[in-house]
Design a protein around this nucleic acid. Structure first.
Lengths: 170, 170
DNA sequence: CGATTAGGTCTCCATTATAGACCTACTCTC
DNA sequence: GAGAGTAGGTCTATAATGGAGACCTAATCG
C-alpha cells in the first residue's frame, strides 16, 4: 500500500476491488437506492460540492462568506448545494441568534472523513492536469483536421485499425 | 499515512493540503481553465463517468457491451460520456475492421492512474453509505415535521440557536 | 427616512440530459 | 435476394437542471 513508483501492482488491486464492487451492484440489479456510486458520488461530483467542501475544510464559514469566496457561484446554487451537503450529513448548519440571524456552515465528522479521498482525487487532478490538457488539444485538433468536417459522416475509422480482430460475430 | 484509527492527524493534514491548494487557485483568480477541480473533477463526477471507468477497469469493452452492462444509460449519453473520457485521455477508443466495424474502449494509462483515487472514494462511499442514508432520513423528516409545511416560509430558524454568538456585525 | 447587511427564496430563461426513433453497412437465414 | 438481426452510432423532441438576478424580512446605522 506504500505508494511505490511501480504502480502496476496497485493498479491491479484497484482494478480487482472496483470490479468486485461493480459486480456486487450489478447483482442487486443496480438499484439506484443501493448503489453508492449513483447515490453518493453523484452528489460529490456535482460542480460545486467539492469546491464547497474544500472551502469549508479550512474553517467554518457563513453564507455570504462562501458566496464571496467561491466567486462564480450564485446564491441559488450555494443554497441548494449546501442543503444537499447538509442533507447527506457532510455539512452542519448552525444558526446564531444575532440581530440579523447569522448562519454558519461547517464540516461534520462525516464531512471531515471525506477529505482523505478528496485530497487524493485533487492530488491526482493536479498531477495529471497538464497531461489532460494535452490530450484535449490532441483530440480537438484531430477532430477538426479529420478526413471531413462534414457532419453527416458515420462510422469513420480514424485511428489505426486493428490488433486482435475480435470475433466477427458473437 | 498508515490508516490508523486516530484519523485526527491525517484529517488535519488533508485540511492543510486542501486549504493550500484552494488558496493557490484563488490567487489565480479561480480561472476555470487552470483550476483542476473545476476542469477535471467536474467531468469525473458526472453521473456516468465514474460508472464507466469502473466498468472499463475490469476489461476493455465494446459499445454495446457497455450499453448492456450499465443498464440505465442511453445510447446518446454513452456516446457522449465516452467521448468526454476519450477527449480527456482517460479512455482509448480502438476501431477494429471487422465486417460491421467494432469499437473497443479501454482505459489508457492515465485512466488507470485514476483508479487509485477512485477506489478510495468508492470505498469511502460504501463505508459511509448507511450513515448518509440515516442523515437523509433525519433531514427529510425534520423538514416535514417542522413548524409549518407551508411552502412560503422564509428564514425559519429550526435548529437550536447558538453557542458562540459570532460578532453581531462584521 | 433611506441605505445596508444577513440569509435566503422565487421567477424566468438557457443549457443539458434523456428516451427513443432513425440510419448505414454488413451478414445470416430461408 | 428479401427480410431480420447486429454493430455503432446520430438526430430530434422533451424533461430536468443550472444560473442570473429580482425580491423579501428583519434589524441596525446615519
Amino acid at each position: 500500500m506504500t505508494r511505490s513508483p511501480g504502480e502496476n501492482l496497485t493498479v491491479a488491486t484497484h482494478r480487482a476491488t472496483l470490479t468486485d464492487r461493480y459486480a456486487a451492484w450489478r447483482e442487486q440489479g443496480f438499484d439506484a437506492s443501493r448503489c453508492p456510486v449513483r447515490n453518493v458520488l453523484d452528489h460529490l461530483g456535482s460542480k460545486w460540492s467539492t469546491l464547497l467542501l474544500i472551502a469549508l475544510a479550512e474553517k467554518p464559514m457563513r453564507f455570504n462568506a462562501l458566496l464571496r469566496d467561491v466567486p462564480d457561484i450564485s446564491k441559488r446554487m450555494l443554497t441548494q448545494t449546501l442543503r444537499d451537503l447538509e442533507r447527506d450529513g457532510l455539512v452542519a448548519r448552525q444558526v446564531f441568534p444575532t440581530k440579523p440571524p447569522s448562519v454558519e456552515y461547517r464540516l461534520s465528522a462525516t464531512g471531515e472523513s471525506v477529505l482523505g479521498p478528496l485530497t487524493a482525487l485533487v492530488g491526482w487532478a493536479e498531477q495529471h492536469f497538464p497531461e489532460i490538457v494535452r490530450a484535449r488539444l490532441r483530440f480537438d485538433t484531430a477532430a477538426e483536421g479529420g478526413s471531413a468536417p462534414v457532419p453527416g459522416e458515420t462510422a469513420r475509422v480514424e485511428r489505426p485499425p486493428a490488433l486482435a480482430p475480435l470475433p466477427v460475430r458473437g
